[in-house]
Design a protein around this nucleic acid. Structure first.
Length: 462
RNA sequence: GUGGUUGUAGCUCAGCUGGUUAGAGCGCUGGAUUGUGGUUCCAGAGGUCGCCGGUUCGAACCCGGUCUUCCACCCCA
């Protein structure tokens, strides 16, 4: 009995057409990463659970895919744990490995493990899938690709400036104009929390504030109240809700607001330096926007934080994010190594580009010329030219079987092949081939023996 | 994880208050056209109605469960 095939929810197959578009994005990103001096690494799909657990907050732990131990994994679990039916205590007993949730934490682990072989500052990039046990939605999958670039061992805020430029360069290359790179600094958020006396409620505070543009001022205040932040404290934070104007104006207001907070002032100064330097150097097609409500959930960030929004009019969550983390390697036993990095959400960038029709047509054709197969002798003759053209870097192919000529033409048409070469009985007798331009319908005759004339035509057409 | 939504041919979708052999368009295959695709015309193939169970004389349609899709939360790329 044949079963109906299916794939798990939140996963996808990629067709040749989709993959050539995805590769176009990946190659653009890769080229820029390398131009900016990053080197590639790869890490395993799965890590030891303890490497991952606890790095993404409580919510993150829930979304990590756990891998069941091999063998008779229940036999060694003692009855008390098994009988308690408590997932939190049972899980570590039956699962020691987990699929990676992002690329930043495995990278931190990599840095610590290989610290003696790495020349610091270390700039690495990594393009690999990650997995999250999330409920899928549009632009939200359970298996998706991240394209990360990080620098570890460099404290200078010039790194942040370069990352803003990197974002801008990639999106400009892709033709994705009008992206907004939102920037904030965790120190500012800490400073504000300190100011209003809610230091230990920093996470709740930032998570609520993050929703400002989505649910509005009143609802945010309600949530803050519900989380145990006093009315007076919220009143003190009032200037945050009406942060408009240029970056400079906003920074000036933050300076007065945070005058008594050492960490807050530090954050403002860092941000000021980054923003003014980005302005000085200029951007291509993206714009940098200070957004004091930007918080980001991943709790390892300590300094600058980034998030990229798609151009106006496209409804899609952030297509990139990142920030500075001072202590990530500290968790694995390597102190005083600051890191900063960004991530591109390949799958979401794909969806946005699809929606805006930004993929070049040239991605759709996979062949420069197709030779029709009209029999054994004819096919062999065609293959000689195919081999010659391939050596010259032309994407050439021979139709695999001597099917009906109509079928072969139809195949060429649908694949979008611009040129079709016909070598049949007639041509063979004359020592020539017929070359048809599929777009215009023009046909011309060329000698079989000398492939260079054909090559010339192909080169001039492309 | 919570609440809702969706599933009928390869694709996009019709299908009445449950009632004989479940339809269309596109696509596919063949022919018109025995060496010429994209247009047209003709013919044909293709469906466990997501899956499991229940109600009923009878279920694509009603009920329960389950999987999937999309949406809102949560969170995030």
């Amino acid at each position: 009995m044949a079963q109906k095939p299916s794939i798990p929810k939140g996963t996808r197959d990629f067709s040749p057409a989709e993959l050539s578009r995805r590769n176009h994005i990946v190659e653009t990103i890769k080229r820029r990463f390398e131009l900016f001096g990053f080197q590639p690494i790869e890490t395993p799909s799965f890590e030891n659970s303890e490497t991952l657990m606890g790095k993404y907050g409580e919510e993150g732990d829930r979304l990590i895919f756990k891998i069941l131990n091999s063998g008779d994994y229940l036999s060694k679990v003692d009855d008390a744990v098994l009988g308690s039916r408590n997932s939190a205590s049972l899980t570590p007993k039956i699962s020691e490995k987990a699929l990676r949730y992002d690329l930043t934490v495995p990278f931190a682990r990599y840095v610590v493990m290989h610290r003696n072989d790495i020349d610091f500052p270390f700039k690495r990039y990594q393009i690999q899938p990650v997995w999250r046990a999330d409920r899928p939605q549009k632009g939200r999958f359970r298996e998706f690709y991240q394209c990360d670039a990080d620098v570890v061992g460099a404290n200078s805020p010039l790194q942040e400036v370069e990352f803003v430029q990197l974002y801008d360069a990639v999106f400009t290359d892709l033709g994705l104009k009008g992206c907004t790179i939102k920037i904030n600094n965790r120190k500012i958020l800490s400073g504000i929390a300190e100011m209003i006396g809610a230091k230990d409620l920093l996470v709740d505070f930032t998570v609520a504030l993050d929703k400002l543009d989505k649910i509005g001022e009143e609802k945010v205040k309600e949530e803050l109240l519900a989380k145990g932040i006093s009315k007076e404290a919220i009143a003190k934070a009032q200037p945050l809700f009406t942060m408009i104007g240029t970056a400079k104006e906003q920074l000036d207001r933050l300076k007065t607001l945070l005058a008594d907070s050492q960490i807050g002032i530090l954050g403002v100064a860092e941000l000021e330096e980054i923003i003014s330097n980005v302005e000085l150097l200029g951007l291509g097609s993206a714009r940098l926007q200070l957004d004091v409500t930007l918080a980001r959930g991943l709790n390892y960030y300590t300094g600058a934080i980034f998030e990229v929004a798609a151009p106006d009019g496209v409804s899609m969550g952030s297509i990139g994010g990142g920030g500075r983390y001072d202590d990530l390697t500290g968790i694995f036993g390597l102190q005083d190594v600051s890191g900063v990095g960004i991530s591109f959400g390949l799958d979401r960038i794909y969806l946005v580009m699809e929606e805006l029709g930004l993929f070049p047509d040239s991605l759709d054709n996979s062949l420069d010329i197709l030779f029709l197969n009209l029999g054994k002798k004819e096919g062999l003759e065609a293959l000689k030219l195919v081999s010659f053209l391939r050596r010259e870097g032309i994407r050439a192919d021979l139709y695999p079987t001597d099917a009906k000529i109509q079928k072969q033409f139809k195949y060429a048409d649908r694949k979008g092949v611009p040129l079709v070469a016909v070598i049949g009985e007639e041509e063979l007798a004359q020592g020539r081939l017929t070359l048809r331009n599929m777009k215009t319908g023009d046909q011309r005759s060329l000698p079989l023996e000398d492939g260079s004339l054909l090559l010339e035509r192909l080169r001039s057409d492309s």
